[in-house]
């Protein structure tokens, strides 16, 4: 049976949260004036809802305290605030105590687009993945969001769920999706290929990776595409296998080129299987001009074309293409 997909991952998440909370009174929604949760959640489940105000530090500390009593709080804010303004509360009150708070961070990467750096979150993966005990999830579409939220609801420790803002194309379509193994910590191979591997995380990066794989295939290059929906714990086995079986790795992310997906992959491969790595990510700069999400990413170095160029720059491929 196929159900209609919501238009954005954050809308899908909200619907999934209400479903989870209906079935389990321990699941609470903590709001920090995100807008809409009062209608979608509070109106139906007021005893499992708290608005802490526009106060993200407070949000994280209160979530930690609630979690210490057996409640399973979903703390809702934007990635920019979860990963910077309230990072100390996340580090100490949540991660240090290993408490089962689900930090749901929307508007990640450049998805807040024309609002600019005040609402861009380009360092959140770097911050969150270096916190001990933290699980870090970056779903690629609405379907994957629902599956991962459901899988994460009962993890024993804290979770950072990285969501965007905008409507997104589905990666998984129709009945095919149901059979996909979506296990936290296990990368999903979206395309088979033995020449080069593209490792992507998040909605637009995964789309760019798939488009790049099509372009490369047209040129006779077989690109494997791994959807890295879990940044921590990292699927080391899939990455090492890709390094062994293909000429090198291209990483793609809606995040700074420093410290995120590219950083994590490079760290692992440098130790386990050194191969060429090309990082497609946001250049180390702020984006100060308005534009769409896609336009801003392209200006910062993240697009299908950048992925193709990076893949071709891995030397054995250059040889095969130009010979």
């Amino acid at each position: 049976m196929t159900t209609a997909l919501p238009e954005s991952d954050r809308a899908a998440y909200r619907a999934a949260l209400v479903d989870l909370a209906r079935a389990d009174t321990r699941i609470w929604c903590l709001d920090s004036d995100m807008g809409g949760l009062e209608k979608q959640f509070q109106a139906e489940l007021p005893d499992q809802y708290v608005d802490v105000g526009i106060a993200e530090a407070n949000l994280m500390s209160i979530a930690a305290a609630l979690a210490s009593t057996g409640i399973l709080p979903f703390a809702n804010t934007m990635a920019a605030f979860a990963s910077a303004r309230a990072l100390e509360q996340v580090k100490l009150d949540i991660a240090y105590h290993g408490l089962p708070v689900r930090i749901v961070a929307t508007h990640a990467g450049f998805s807040a687009a024309h609002y600019g750096p005040t609402h861009h979150a380009q360092s959140d993966l770097a911050a969150m993945r270096t916190l001990p005990n933290m699980t870090v999830l970056t779903p690629a579409d609405a379907y994957e969001t629902v599956r991962l939220v459901t899988a994460a609801a009962y993890l024993p420790g804290p979770v950072y769920l990285r969501l965007g803002r905008n409507p997104i194309e589905p990666v998984y379509a129709g009945d095919d999706a149901v059979g996909t193994d979506l296990t936290i910590g296990k990368a999903v191979e979206l395309r088979a290929g033995d020449d080069v591997t593209i490792v992507a995380a998040g909605a637009l990066p995964v789309r760019f990776a798939l488009e790049a794989a099509d372009d490369l295939a047209a040129g006779g290059v077989g690109a494997r595409v791994l959807n890295l929906h879990t940044i921590k714990p990292l699927d080391v086995a899939a990455l090492v296998a890709a390094a062994e079986q293909t000429a090198g790795i291209v990483t793609v992310e809606d995040h700074s080129v420093l410290g995120g997906v590219g950083g994590a992959v490079a760290e692992v491969l440098a130790e386990h299987r050194p191969v060429p790595v090309r990082r497609v990510g946001i250049a180390d700069s702020f984006c100060a001009r308005p534009g769409t999400h896609t336009e801003q990413l392209a200006a910062a170095g993240v697009s299908t074309a950048h992925v193709v160029a990076a893949a071709l720059s891995i030397s054995p491929l250059c040889t095969s293409i130009w010979d």
Partner: peptide
């Protein structure tokens, strides 16, 4: 790290 305790206490009290 100062400034955490009152929010933690508020969370416990709310629970």
């Amino acid at each position: 790290s100062l400034g955490h305790g009152l929010a933690l206490g508020a969370g416990l009290a709310l629970a």
